[in-house]
């Protein structure tokens, strides 16, 4: 990645806590245009909360989230909405609206925010479904298809408005290895074809190495970013034992002997 590419997302000194329990502690990182950025870390490290702050669902206590230099949480609601319209979000469970067919799910954002005619919307819906490999499923309800298909349909909805930033929350959660791989391939294709900036929140090592250009590792104990860089570089060059342990599933031990028990 070239060094002079401007960051699309910049996170500065982000803090958040529930009562007295910190869930994000002074987070700092930036995501460059057109890259796939991974937010990784063990369970309970604050990944999902960070995602909520990034997509505008939860206000942080302190710190800034800048989109192309604009401080999101300082804007008035209409401006925030305008920025949010640049986002596509794939939720962990898909979050398709259950009373809508797949086609209606994808059509809704188009009906609200595009100037297309109903016939054109139908065509775009078919295209988006074809992109995720679900041609012909427009009239199915989410309850009538499998979990993996729901996720792909949700991805079709997330890219309905050709967003320039796409967020993925645990994309491979609950999927079999082949479906997870297929979703990783889709992420890579989206980056190449749409030129979108992609943020993936995950702890799946296979996905991290398969798609990540850059990554930030959140630490479960300190709730802060302990490493930033390309996942492969981090694995090869990091001297932090926590980073190596995470990226090797604890197989390469860096802690003093005997501290961790192995059966």
């Amino acid at each position: 990645m070239e060094a002079n590419v401007k960051p699309v997302i910049t996170v500065r000194n982000l803090d958040l806590s529930y009562d007295d329990y910190a869930v994000m502690n002074n987070l700092n990182f930036s995501v460059k245009k057109g890259e796939i950025f991974i937010v990784m870390g063990g369970s309970g490290c604050g990944k999902s909360t960070l995602l909520k702050v990034l997509i505008g669902l939860k206000e942080p206590e302190k710190g800034e989230v800048l989109y192309d230099g604009i401080n999101f949480w300082e804007q008035d609601e209409p401006t925030q909405q305008k920025i949010m319209r640049r986002f596509g979000v794939l939720y962990q469970g898909g979050a398709l609206w259950s009373s809508f067919t797949l086609g209606e799910n994808i059509a809704l954002p188009l009906q609200l925010y595009s100037a297309l005619s109903p016939a054109q919307i139908k065509e775009v819906v078919e295209l988006k479904l074809a992109l995720v490999g679900l041609s012909g499923y427009a009239d199915f309800y989410p309850s009538e298809i499998s979990g993996g298909m729901c996720k792909r349909a949700a991805l079709a909805r997330a890219i309905a408005l050709d967003p320039d930033i796409i967020f993925f929350d645990e994309p491979s959660a609950g999927l079999d290895p082949l479906s997870a791989r297929m979703l990783d391939d889709l992420i890579l294709q989206l980056k190449d074809t749409l030129g979108a900036t992609i943020v993936v929140v995950t702890h799946e090592l296979a996905s991290i190495f398969a798609v990540g250009d850059n990554a930030a590792l959140l630490d479960t104990e300190t709730k802060s970013v302990i490493a930033i860089g390309s996942p492969k570089d981090l694995l090869a060059n990091s001297s932090d034992p926590r980073v190596i342990q995470f990226l090797t599933r604890g197989e390469r031990q860096a802690t003093p002997a005997g501290k961790e028990f192995k059966l």
Binding site: L57, M84, V89, Y91, A95, L108, L112, R157
Partner: peptide, 8 residues
């Protein structure tokens, strides 16, 4: 949440 992120 999916509705909110779409501004609905």
């Amino acid at each position: 949440d999916a509705l909110k992120t779409l501004g609905i």
